[in-house]
Deep mutational scan, measured.
Amino acid sequence: AEIMKKTDFDKVASEYTKIGTISTTGEMSPLDAREDLIKKADEKGADVVVLTSGQTENKIHGTADIYKKK
């Protein structure tokens, strides 16, 4: 799966169907969080990951919607 910015995804959204939401939390780098989200998306058969939230304090927390091409 590839990560797309919401603004970029909005241009092609009609080509995809939302298949779920994924999240990651833990003591990790932003890059590790990104890789974890991609891994989870791949496991669910998603083609595209669109980040919906991200937070960093002591731990990273990120959520994303996942989509499959129609």
Rank of each mutant, 00 (worst) to 15 (best):
A1H: 02
A1S: 05
A1I: 13
A1G: 04
A1T: 05
A1K: 02
E2L: 15
E2C: 15
E2I: 15
E2T: 15
E2D: 06
E2A: 14
I3T: 03
I3Y: 07
I3G: 00
I3V: 09
M4T: 02
M4K: 03
K5S: 15
K5W: 15
K5N: 14
K5I: 11
K5C: 15
K5F: 14
K6A: 10
T7M: 09
T7V: 13
T7D: 13
T7A: 14
T7R: 09
D8R: 04
D8I: 04
D8V: 05
D8A: 06
F9A: 01
F9T: 02
F9N: 00
F9I: 01
D10T: 06
D10W: 08
D10C: 13
D10Y: 07
D10S: 07
K11W: 05
K11F: 05
K11H: 06
V12G: 01
V12W: 04
V12C: 07
V12E: 03
A13M: 07
A13Y: 06
A13T: 04
A13H: 06
S14V: 08
S14N: 11
E15L: 13
E15Q: 14
E15D: 10
E15I: 07
Y16L: 01
Y16S: 00
Y16H: 00
T17K: 09
K18G: 03
K18L: 13
K18Y: 15
K18T: 04
K18F: 15
K18D: 00
K18M: 09
I19P: 04
I19K: 01
I19T: 03
I19N: 01
I19G: 01
G20C: 07
G20V: 02
G20P: 01
G20M: 04
G20Q: 00
T21H: 07
T21K: 05
T21M: 07
I22H: 00
I22T: 01
I22D: 01
I22V: 08
I22R: 02
S23K: 10
T24C: 13
T24R: 03
T24E: 03
T25Q: 11
T25N: 13
T25R: 09
G26Y: 12
G26F: 14
G26N: 10
E27P: 13
E27L: 13
M28F: 08
M28K: 08
M28P: 05
M28H: 07
M28S: 06
M28T: 05
M28A: 07
S29A: 08
S29M: 07
S29K: 08
S29F: 06
P30R: 08
P30L: 13
P30T: 12
L31Q: 14
D32A: 13
D32P: 03
D32H: 09
D32Q: 14
D32N: 08
A33W: 14
A33Y: 07
R34N: 07
R34P: 03
R34G: 04
R34K: 09
R34D: 04
E35D: 08
E35Q: 12
E35N: 14
E35Y: 10
D36H: 10
D36M: 11
D36E: 14
D36R: 06
D36L: 12
L37G: 00
L37W: 04
L37N: 01
I38C: 07
I38L: 14
I38P: 00
I38N: 03
I38G: 02
K39A: 08
K39L: 06
K40D: 02
K40C: 06
K40L: 09
K40Q: 14
K40R: 09
K40W: 06
K40T: 05
A41P: 01
A41V: 01
A41M: 01
D42Q: 14
D42S: 15
D42A: 13
D42P: 00
D42E: 12
D42T: 15
E43Q: 10
K44N: 07
K44A: 15
G45W: 04
G45N: 07
G45F: 06
G45R: 05
G45M: 06
G45P: 01
A46K: 00
A46F: 01
D47H: 10
D47T: 07
D47V: 06
D47G: 03
D47K: 03
V48N: 02
V48R: 03
V49D: 01
V49R: 02
V49T: 00
V49E: 00
V50W: 02
V50Y: 03
V50E: 01
V50D: 00
L51M: 12
L51I: 14
T52R: 15
T52G: 11
T52N: 11
T52W: 13
S53I: 14
S53W: 14
S53G: 12
G54S: 13
G54P: 14
G54T: 12
Q55E: 13
Q55P: 11
Q55Y: 15
Q55N: 11
Q55V: 12
Q55D: 14
T56V: 10
T56Y: 10
E57P: 12
E57H: 08
E57K: 09
N58E: 13
N58D: 14
K59Y: 15
K59Q: 11
K59E: 14
K59F: 15
K59C: 14
I60G: 12
I60E: 10
I60F: 14
I60V: 12
I60H: 10
I60N: 10
H61P: 09
H61Q: 10
H61M: 13
H61N: 11
H61G: 12
H61C: 14
H61A: 11
G62A: 15
G62S: 13
G62W: 15
G62L: 15
T63D: 08
T63S: 08
T63A: 07
A64D: 02
A64I: 04
D65T: 07
D65M: 04
D65G: 03
D65F: 05
D65E: 09
I66K: 02
I66C: 04
I66G: 02
I66N: 00
I66L: 11
Y67G: 00
Y67S: 00
Y67D: 00
K68Y: 04
K68D: 01
K69F: 06
K69D: 02
K69H: 10
K69W: 05
K70F: 06
K70L: 08
K70W: 05
K70A: 06
K70E: 04
K70Y: 05
